[in-house]
């Protein structure tokens, strides 16, 4: 499916009608699963993922997830909590109904990345000898998969009440130039969908909150090194926008919980610093 890049240069609109710096619609919910310690549901355009967090709890039998992170890991008792992530990509999530086994290296890499990125933000040293199990389910894929998974995992961890330094937020960025052409006029693009990811160079950026500090940077396509700076800048900026959106979701949920009386009595809404 050739992407009509010539159309972009005429109207400066992308295949789905967005401008270069526009995110797709992000819809998120937290506390979607009553039984879980923390849960979330996130849509970035047509990419839809669910996340369930269990823990921090005593390590149970190994679930085959990837553990990682700083100082974590090891079968022995550790001084920090293990962050164990499992990603399940549903067979119906993409157009070509491909069955991915447990040992799929791409999925293992996703798991390891998410685990290691969150472990650096979560205060794992507060929960020695325990496991934080994060289980992610991909329901629908339309590009920016890793970014959506990281965002969903962050939301679920917040819902589970695990102390963390700041949100780990992610989004993707791309460029309108093909890898061979070193055209200076190429525009960076924000939040790639599946079709754009197939055709154009793209990268996934995750930052710690609204800072400029990059936790995850994954680029899997060929691109001129001179394009990187622009793409990275747009990506980091996009992360700040994503953080705003996720923050709003969390605060809105908090407000509703207070109104519904989940918070202990005697504390009025005005006393609490929420907005």
């Amino acid at each position: 499916m050739p992407l009509d890049t010539s159309a972009y240069s005429l109207a400066l609109l992308r295949v789905d009608g967005r401008r270069w710096n526009e995110l797709r619609r992000i819809h998120a919910q937290i506390r979607t699963q009553a039984a879980a310690d923390g849960s979330s549901y996130l849509e970035m355009g047509h990419t839809k993922v669910m996340c369930v967090v269990t823990g921090p709890s005593e390590p149970g039998p190994k679930r085959g997830g990837m553990t990682g992170g700083v100082g974590g890991g090891g079968g022995e008792r550790s001084s920090t909590a293990d962050v164990s992530v499992s990603v399940v990509i549903a067979g119906f999530s993409s157009v070509d109904r491909k069955r991915r086994g447990r040992g799929d290296k791409r999925t293992l890499e996703l798991q390891s990345t998410i685990s290691s990125a969150l472990a650096a933000s979560l205060h794992t040293h507060l929960h020695p000898n325990s496991t934080i199990a994060i289980s992610l389910h991909v329901l629908s894929q339309d590009g920016s998969l890793l970014a959506a998974l990281i965002n969903a995992a962050t939301l679920a961890c917040i819902d589970a009440g695990i102390p963390m330094t700041d949100y780990v937020v992610a989004c993707t960025a791309g460029s309108t130039s093909t890898y061979a052409a070193n055209d200076e006029g190429a525009d960076p693009l924000l939040d790639m969908n599946h079709q754009e990811e197939q055709e154009l160079p793209s990268l996934t950026v995750a930052t710690l909150g609204s800072s400029d500090r990059v936790a995850v940077l994954v680029c899997e396509s060929r691109v001129q090194v001179s394009r990187l700076e622009g793409m990275l800048a747009v990506g980091v900026d996009g992360c700040k926008q994503v953080r705003e959106i996720l923050d709003r979701v969390v605060r809105e949920k908090g407000r509703r919980m207070i109104q519904e009386g989940t918070i202990e009595k005697g504390m009025s809404l005005d006393d609490m610093d929420i907005d």
């Binding site: 990345t113 990125a117 650096a120 990059v214 936790a215 994954v218 899997e220 001129q224 090194v225 980091v236």
Partner: peptide, 25 residues
């Protein structure tokens, strides 16, 4: 030729974006 084929910073402690660009150079 200065073409990036792949970048992988798979988690870990966040690093300043400018420092990463410096690393690339």
């Amino acid at each position: 030729h200065g073409e990036i084929c792949q970048i992988a910073k798979l988690g870990g402690t966040p690093v300043d974006a400018v420092a990463l660009l410096q690393c690339t150079n």
